[in-house]
Design a protein around this nucleic acid. Structure first.
Ligand code: SF4
Ligand code: SF4
Lengths: 134, 134
DNA sequence: ACCTTTAAGACCAGTTTAGTCTTTTTATAA
DNA sequence: TTATAAAAAGACTAAACTGGTCTTAAAGGT
């Protein structure tokens, strides 16, 4: 239960690799894919999601590639995971009112809410900078 | 991310219903399915998993049905969820050594371990008795 | 015998996962 | 201005998983 998909795992590996590069260095997707042992075309998709959210900046053409969009210390593990896997949501009823007609009197509902806030708290407490340090 | 499946949701509803019945009362799968708004044949499968683990007792024939296998206070939400969804496992590398060759130096690994232990702790801290009280 | 009830397992449509492949766009360099 | 380099976009796919259904078998009661 609650397993991270390959996409999430690869996403973390990819952005951590970026954070480990010297400041200002632009990395090619081919280079990142090889270093992180992730299929290149799949990683490219993942990085597109990051770029849309501003987590990384991309540039095309000769000398192009990827670079962190903001300091590694301001990117949390939660942001990376949610960028590719969607919000952390242990049960459907946490989305909003009306998603389950039982949620008024349901005793299980608050348990899932607790789980959600704990997991969010843990992942928000870890930055990519911390993960990148060796 | 981390969403409980229908099977897990239905499993909880079903066993909580059983716990809400008067002591000694045997419930039919048709009755439970109707009360919990779960497809009957699907719920039957779920209850088979419970029976194998001893969480509930089943008997066939006239007068048969399902009854809790042990006190609701000694069944935790974790046991119920894991019975149908498998172990709580945020990432593959938590299964055992060797599942990821990076786990020695990996900084992400301990984060998933923390997530796992928190979620397990929360779900183990909730009994079906608590969920069944009205 | 006959009826009731769960057990077991085959089956299935739809969705998601984990990618691949091709074409297009943008940027640099000769 | 042409060639080259690189990411972006999107179509496509096989395999697995989800959320069930259906049929037959087994066990128990009358
Ligand atoms: S029954 Fe309770 S836990 Fe289940 S979806 Fe509804 S509100 Fe959430
Ligand atoms: S978190 Fe680290 S140890 Fe776990 S699968 Fe990812 S790289 Fe491997």
């Amino acid at each position: 239960m609650m397993e991270l998909t390959r996409k999430g795992e690869y996403a973390i590996r990819g952005i951590v690799y970026l954070a480990q590069q010297p400041a200002g260095k632009v990395s090619l997707i081919s280079e990142i894919a090889q270093a992180t042992e992730v299929p290149q075309t799949f990683l490219a998709k993942i990085f597109q999601s990051f770029a849309k959210l501003g987590l990384i900046n991309s540039s095309r053409g000769t000398g192009g590639g990827f670079i962190l969009g903001r300091p590694a210390s301001s990117i949390t593990l939660r942001q990376v995971v949610e960028a590719v896997e969607g919000p952390i949501m242990p049960n459907r009823c946490l989305l909003g009112t009306g998603s389950c007609e039982r949620d008024g009197h349901c005793r299980v509902h608050p348990v899932w809410k607790t789980v959600q806030s704990h997991v969010v708290g843990i992942l928000d407490g870890v930055t990519i900078e911390e993960l990148a340090s060796k």
